[in-house]
Amino acid sequence: MSESLFEKLGGEAAVDAAVDIFYRKVLADDRISTFFDGVDMASQAAKQKSFLTMAFGGPNNYTGADLRSGHAHLVKRGLNDSHFDAVVENLGATLTELGVSDELIGEVVAVCEPTRNDILGK
């Protein structure tokens, strides 16, 4: 059996390395940072870890319904495609910084894409 995307990226250790860089990029990005105003940083970091594990093709229990209900309050505040794209862009930049190949980054982006409609409540 060929290696899974999660294994190719380096598994859980890679998620740990990525989460700190990724979340920092997201919070520093004026396009999307206001959506994180007032959130609890520690619990948010745990959520980012769950998200990255999912994006890396790792084990996760995310369902479309979870993503929909979890982001509904943000959709009300104007969350749209441009914000989704910004998050994916930050994820790509994080992986580039960690020396991941463009090919694998493309695979990660492809994993995220199907969640777009659920996250944006479409």
Binding site: S43, A46, K47, K49, S50, T53, P59, N60, N61
Partner: peptide
């Protein structure tokens, strides 16, 4: 509990 994967805490 939620994720049962040791992630969500």
């Amino acid at each position: 509990y939620a994720c049962k994967q040791g992630l969500c805490q």
